[in-house]
Nucleic acid binder design. Structure first.
Length: 231
DNA sequence: GCGACAG
DNA sequence: ATCTTGTCGC
């Protein structure tokens, strides 16, 4: 492990250019490095990450926005362009978006205590979604916040309409995440632990930064990218 | 073999 | 993800 000149921890790691078989094998291996308990004391800075694809091109961009917590004021915002080299395969999203995300984090000067990702963490076939993968590589606490289910099921009848209500996502015989109502009378969001955090804390912080359906950190990162001119 | 399948 | 306006509902 080393640190680049901008202070953000970057772990010396694997290559992203792998085939399906190798990627799955790597996920199984790295999933053993995931920590499912809180690896932070005080949360003073949180970040939101999002990736945008440019139509009819191989252009891809990523934005990382860092906010003060709990005031949620923007401390830093960085973005970066790159090219997509890996196809979209359910379960292997990190191999498609990981490279840009990593590249963007290298530009961040403020190390966040907690990072929100637009995708799953533990609620993944091999318990190693984008949020987990990036959390391990960046050695940071992360939360997976997806807009749709990738695997597992949850009891819709026990999920009430008020904000804060949730029901566990079950896969096999274990709890892998929760379907969380971040806003009343709105479709839930699927939250799971990424790395260095418990599911309970993931739910807690997600609710604390949600005004609408999508948690503010991720939502703002998304809007930030939407306003960038991509010619 | 069939269906499911983050962004 | 992306192509896209209005429209229904709280």
């Amino acid at each position: 492990m080393w640190r680049n000149n901008t202070m953000v921890a970057i772990k010396k790691h694997h290559q992203w250019d792998l085939n399906y078989r190798e990627a799955v094998k790597l996920q199984k291996k790295l999933s053993g490095s995931v920590i499912l308990s809180d690896g932070f004391s005080r949360v003073k800075k949180i970040a939101g990450v999002d990736v945008r694809y440019v139509k009819n091109s191989d252009k891809i961009l990523c934005a990382v926005l860092v906010f003060s917590y709990p005031s949620l004021e923007i401390i830093e915002e960085k973005y970066v362009f790159s090219k997509v080299t890996f196809p979209y395969i359910p379960g292997l999203l990190s191999f498609r978006e990981g490279p840009v995300v990593e590249k963007c984090f290298a530009k961040i000067n403020n190390i966040p205590d907690l990072v929100f990702f637009d995708g799953h963490g533990y609620s993944h076939p091999r318990r190693f979604g984008l949020a987990s993968h990036m959390g391990v590589i960046l050695d940071i606490a992360s939360i997976g916040c997806a807009r749709s289910l990738l695997c597992g099921n949850y009891d819709k009848s026990s999920l009430h309409e008020e904000k804060g209500s949730y029901s566990y996502i079950i896969d096999g015989n274990e709890i892998i995440g929760v379907a969380l109502r971040t806003r009343g009378n709105t479709k839930p969001v699927f939250v799971s632990a990424g790395n260095k955090i418990s599911l309970e804390s993931a739910v807690k912080y997600t609710l604390l930064v949600s005004k609408y359906r999508i948690p503010e950190p991720v939502k703002l990162a998304h809007n930030f990218l939407k306003n960038i001119n991509v010619v």
